[in-house]
Write a protein that binds this DNA or RNA. Structure first.
Ligand SMILES: [Mn+2]
Ligand SMILES: [Mn+2]
Ligand SMILES: [Mn+2]
Ligand SMILES: [Mn+2]
Lengths: 218, 218
DNA sequence: CTTTATTTTTAGCCTTGACTAAAAATAAAA
DNA sequence: TTTTATTTTTAGTCAAGGCTAAAAATAAAG
């Protein structure tokens, strides 16, 4: 059994590792966890002894198979609880993250497997992120950022990259949610901004918005 | 906001206080929490500074209004989660306590108020214990122990005193659950044992069983 | 190649919530 | 009312997880 702090480190390292290949640096972890590098070094050394990650002084860390599975399981719990909060308790998708951050640390295999069933074995959380199975495996999905599309391409919104409240509320205002069809009417190469069509509306979006929306084309 | 340890102390003291009038002794708390008296003294001094209980050296502690409300709120969360686990996830009533013990420490007013609504504002948990309202108030119910009934009296089972697995599984075996009608056919004054009728069955029960079943007569 | 800047680690300290052993109060017996 | 037993508190440690400041590696410039 891993402590709350250990689980959070594993989760953070898992996410960092998937966002950039190679070992994860101490500073990157400290940054992601809003803590100090010295604290990270301590914890990472402890986790290396527990064989959930391999750590080479001054070189960084990377999760072992065991560590990856543990991290994926925490993420699985986080995302299943987010589904519960949105689908069953009618929370809005921008309100669930902090609560799930607590619920993900409740230890009970049985609880999660029953929750999974209760929710109808969902594949994605409310932000479009895939829910790992109980072995820690994630189905790979082919999605790209809206910012990668060009003029006249279109697709369906299948997820958000950042999911902070401000961004999600912006999407609501524009009636964009998971499943929404989006077409690129124009793209400005100077600043990466776009004009897109959503339903009957067409409007301008900045590069920053386009870089945070996942689209599936085909 | 109170830490997990603080919440558990408050809860334990709340229960001890309701089971016996007057200040609660340090040893009683240590006993209930399966910890050492010296640890209790430490924590109780800390909680006294936070004004959730009043503590007089060598005399014991008792919760303040603030402490009672906080404790009742933790208990409210515990019991609502137990209802959720049984009613929605189909857990058995003897499996839910340890999970609820973790879930009760998730901090979110909104979560609990939505959960309450989702469950249909239940008044009792799966073991028949009353669920405090959000202000920490508990409706008083007039129930007595089965052991207090005499020959030819009858009533409805409305709760269990102890709720450990062995006891609950015994009740299942005898088809006794919340709502079951129970009649006392005979009572042995020497050892407090009884012969009772449940449905079509009539059988012998020990004093210990009778002392752990709450009955409502009328 | 040195020198400088950045990253990472170490050393030492802090808080929380435990524990043990010893001291002090209080309660019970004699 | 002494003496003894029990309860409670204090003093001193410890592990987990943080932090700061200083030292050591590594990387980047000059
Ligand atoms: Mn989240
Ligand atoms: Mn999510
Ligand atoms: Mn319980
Ligand atoms: Mn209960």
């Amino acid at each position: 059994m891993y402590s709350l702090a250990e689980e959070n480190y594993l989760k953070a390292i898992y996410h960092l590792e998937s966002k950039s290949q190679g070992a994860v640096s101490t500073n990157a972890i400290a940054d992601a966890m809003d803590t100090k590098p010295s604290s990270v070094t301590d914890m990472v050394q402890k986790l290396a002894e527990k064989e959930v990650l391999s750590y080479i002084k001054y070189k960084g860390t990377s999760l072992t198979k065991k560590g990856k599975k543990t991290a994926a399981n925490v993420i699985r719990k986080h995302r299943l609880w987010e589904v519960f909060l949105v689908e069953k308790l009618n929370f809005h998708w921008d309100e669930v993250h902090d609560i799930a951050e607590q619920l993900e640390h409740v230890h009970s295999e049985e609880l999660i497997s029953r929750l999974d069933k209760f929710l109808g074995f969902p594949d994605f959380d409310p932000h479009g992120d895939p829910i790992p199975d109980k072995h820690g495996n994630v189905k790979p999905t082919e999605k790209k950022l809206l910012s990668e599309l060009n003029k006249n391409q279109k697709g369906v919104c299948v997820g958000v990259k950042e999911s902070n409240s401000d961004f999600l509320q912006y999407l609501d205002k524009k009636n964009i949610t998971i499943g929404t069809k989006v077409s690129v009417l124009g793209k400005e190469f100077f600043d990466g901004s776009m004009v897109i069509q959503v339903g009957r509306d067409q409007f301008f979006i900045s590069k920053k918005i386009a870089e945070n929306l996942y689209i599936q084309t085909n």
